[in-house]
Amino acid sequence: MSLNKETVNIQDSLALFCRSGIEPLIPLSRPENLHHYRRLVFNVVLNTMTQAFPIAHKAFGSRNFTDLVHDFFLNHDSQTPQVWKLPFEFYEYVVAKEHQEKFAMPFLNNLLLFEWTEIEVHTMPNVIPHSFQNEGNMFTDILIVNQEYKILQLNYPVHLYAPDKAKDLLGNYYLIALRNPENFNVKFLNLSILHVYFTEQLSIEEQTINEIINKASEIFNLEKNLLITNITPFLNDMFLQKLILGYKKH
């Protein structure tokens, strides 16, 4: 049911006041209390951002971070009605405005994305895996992977070090945020490119570890025996971490 036009205008005026401070031209029963709306709405936004980006908050300092959120609140027309999704729009806003260059914080986009990813993975839709069994051969059977994860490729190790240290360590870093299908807790793993390769290969098509080893041996120019020796502990650990759930039922 669409709202009355006058109601929409009042809502828009109030929203504009909350974002900009421009006094709305609407009838007010208690004008002296109007400023509270602005204060309360901004507090919700600021608290959401502070909770979502605690590391960025510390890197900026409380006052500067508040200024940045003010800037976002004033200039960005939020697309989501869900407050918990707002941090992603904040991240997009910071990227679009090229704040990492402006503020000489080259790691900023990586940091915000890393901090947002925990929320994103935690709240991602459930993905029911294929039915699996616990017994099987790790090298010759098809492994069933938990699809509730996200891999990030970062240029700065913002997941390993404080920002002022991470900023000097430009490189290629791979991070997986993995949701435990039983308790929905999100866990982070710092991976090498080889581990990412195995994880992706297991996810994108049905193939055995032996088949992946053959391909990886060629791509990474590694001896198969060396690969087998070194990838086995990783795979065993991934069973424990619930990245690999089990073996496909025959």
Binding site: P54, I55, K58, A59, F60, G61, N64, D67, L68, F103, A104, M105, E118, H122, V158, H159, L160, Y161, A162, P163, D164, K165, A177, N185, V186, K187, F188, L189, N190, L191, S192, I193, L194, H195, F220, L222, N230, I231, F234, D237, Q241
Partner: peptide, 30 residues
């Protein structure tokens, strides 16, 4: 290529990073 780390939960990772002292006192200004 064979090294990986289980960093832990988001809270554990954040705690670790936030407890790291800023080595040179850099403060980023807007």
């Amino acid at each position: 290529l064979f090294t990986y780390d289980v960093l832990g939960s988001g809270a554990e990772v954040r705690t670790q990073i936030l407890q790291e002292k800023t080595s040179d006192g850099t403060v980023y200004e807007l």
